[in-house]
Amino acid sequence: MKPRVTSIEIVDALLGYTVQNPIFPRFTVEGHAGELIAIIGRNGVGKSTLLRALAGQQPLLSGIVNIMGMPLGELSRRQRAKYISFVPADPVRVANLRVRDFVATARFPYSGWAGGLSPDDWQVVDESLTMVGIDHIAHRDIMTISDGERQRAMIAFALAQDTQIILLDEPTAFLDLPNKFEVVRLLSQLAKSQGKTIIYSTHDLQGAMGEADMVWMMLPGGLVHGAPEDLALNSHFRQLLDNTQVRFDVRSGTFQNYRQYHYKIAIEGEGDGLTWTRRLVERLGFEVVDAVSIGLMVRIIVGKEGSNWEIVKNGETVFTANSLTELAKNLSEFGRDLTAD
């Protein structure tokens, strides 16, 4: 196995505007080549401040950031622009700007104020467009492409800037579900294939758990980092949700609203039918229990024409529903008759 290249080290960093009142506790963490790192945390915890500090756009209160072994503070503007690129959260909105011209602006650190772009520069630009899969719309006006395409164009910008480290501020915020998944997947692939360190902030926990190599979780008590699975197993996701009405289900790895159950019910059945019936009754305020001794039960009967759901009360079938919608309608009526014993 190749030795891991440490591309970014953050040592004893303190974020904020005044030393008396830092916005986040001191922390130390590092990132490596080929890693996709997700920064997770509640609104206002300091994710954007951290990204800006890593981009060299805002100084740390104290502590050091090393980029490829060099202190960030000692790099000139142009050197920094060759090591770190930053993709802002708000989409580019400039009329009459062609996608390819937009991405070409990223070559600025390599050509200076007066010089034009060389054929090599244009090749880098075109390769970047191909890598994110938007070469076919290279000559379109950036205002006329979709949000997903625009986000890819912004990622292509960072690729064309050709930096070891790419920082992205909430790259999936404006995207629909498939685009959210695809963009994070794309970032993960780029980290692996290009050996880059890609660090992005996000509220999309599912996406981060699915693709990120590392999660930097900014909790009120400090920074926790590790593989997303570790953080799930060690109940850090639960800490993230402290004092909220949302809970993390360790078994399924999903997030749910915290529920208070008023009734108990048993379910007889298996497979997908069981999963979705369970979700339905829980949403209606029933706690699912194993014991059949409970007075109320739903029995799933899988037939050729589709499934049926029997509501069984004290051993007697009192209603048969042919859809979960119908089951829901009748179950809430039976639920009202019961007391939570």
């Binding site: 622009a81 802002p88 990223a106 600025f108 650190p109």
Partner: peptide
């Protein structure tokens, strides 16, 4: 051309 993209992009490319 860089400034047209706004301050964030101007900063990231080292202007």
């Amino acid at each position: 051309n860089v400034m047209l993209l706004g301050e964030s992009y101007s900063k990231t490319v080292g202007l």
